[in-house]
């Protein structure tokens, strides 16, 4: 499978223009690096997840790939075309579903909005009418199609944004937080549509930018985790988890364990996180160990030495969320 998106040391630095004179400076002072030497390859037909905390640089990276922001250094190719030198050709290949609140003409109805954007992309007449009807049906807005967008809820506008992004079903679709304001049923339907229809049936490449790690885990073939403008991990979800496998989460239930003994647990080397719940009969511990081979035996010995009866001890599989937190935290 060939790469449809490739970046080479892609960098974006922003400068603060504090006054009008700054507009005319030839040498501008760069104050903030949003994307820092990113090298990324996304394969044709892949469902690729882009994860990162707020301000990690995900949106800037996507906007560079969508030709909306010019990079400071490095290159990005979409379908073999440079995003700076051949931006018009690149725009023919991409679609962006950006679910920000303001991106429609609020005085127009949903149908009129889609009709206008369909025209922008060269869809006309019966083809446009049919496509709009299909998409309104897909996102569940057929009954609301003749209502003005100004009366729509956030979730409805998000669905409409999805419909707009799919008007011409381009080869590469960037989905920026597509389920952010959707109810669970709508979010599930959308995920099924993205995975089964867009990627599996239609063979489109989808870049899913999301904070919902369980969503990325469920859908994506591969994910990249961004932190402070850099890609700190990239690969299949299981491989990402493997990066932090030495860290293991354990769930313990202990009888006759004094709450005062918890301080001793906290002070043990190799305990990264500890969440404790204590009742009269039982203490429940959720622990994240730096390395179970080193930490687990001394921990269990300490608990028994304090008179605790271990009734349950189970290693828990690490979620992508935990792996994400660990990776970002480690950096």
């Amino acid at each position: 499978m060939s790469n449809i998106i490739e970046t080479f040391s892609l960098t974006k630095r922003f400068s603060k223009a504090t006054n009008y004179r700054a507009l005319f400076r030839l040498q501008r002072q760069d104050d903030f690096t949003a994307v820092d030497g990113v090298n990324l390859q996304v394969r044709d037909g892949e469902l690729f997840g882009l994860l990162g905390a707020n301000g990690a640089g995900k949106t800037t990276l996507v906007k560079i790939l969508c030709t909306l922001i010019l990079p400071s250094d490095g290159r990005a190719l979409i379908g073999g075309q440079d995003v700076v030198a051949h931006s018009t050709e690149v725009r023919r290949l991409i679609g962006l579903v950006d679910t920000q609140e303001r991106s429609f003409f609020w005085r127009l109805t949903a149908y009129q909005n889609l009709q206008f954007f369909a025209s922008l992309y060269g869809l006309k007449g019966a083809t446009a009418t049919k496509r709009i009807a299909e998409l309104l049906d897909l996102v569940g807005l057929t009954a609301q199609a003749d209502r003005r967008v100004m009366g729509y809820s956030t979730g409805m506008r998000q669905k409409l944004a999805m419909a707009r992004g799919l008007l011409v079903a381009p080869q590469i679709i960037f989905l920026d937080e597509p389920t952010r304001s959707l109810d669970p049923v709508s979010a599930h339907e959308l995920r099924v549509f993205v995975h089964d229809t867009l990627v599996k049936q239609m063979g489109r490449t989808v870049i899913l930018v999301t904070h919902r790690l369980e969503e990325a885990e469920e859908l994506c073939d591969r994910v990249a985790i961004m932190n402070q403008g850099q890609i700190i991990a990239c690969g299949p979800v299981n491989d990402i988890k493997q990066l932090v496998t030495a860290r293991q989460q354990y769930h313990l239930r202990i009888a006759q364990f004094s709450p005062t003994s918890l301080d001793g647990v906290r002070q043990m080397a190799g305990i990264l996180q500890l969440e404790a719940t204590t009742t009269d009969e039982m203490t429940t511990l959720d622990l994240l160990l730096d390395d179970e081979n080193i930490t687990l035996s001394p921990l269990l010995r300490y608990i028994m030495a304090q008179g605790g009866h271990i009734q349950h001890c189970q290693a828990q599989s690490l979620s992508l969320e935990k792996a994400f937190v660990q990776l970002v935290g480690k950096k």
Partner: peptide, 15 residues
């Protein structure tokens, strides 16, 4: 700019 549609227009293949 105010309606948030400028970027959507920029994404169109038409300059």
């Amino acid at each position: 700019q105010y309606s948030g549609t400028l970027e959507v227009l920029f994404l169109s293949p038409t300059p």
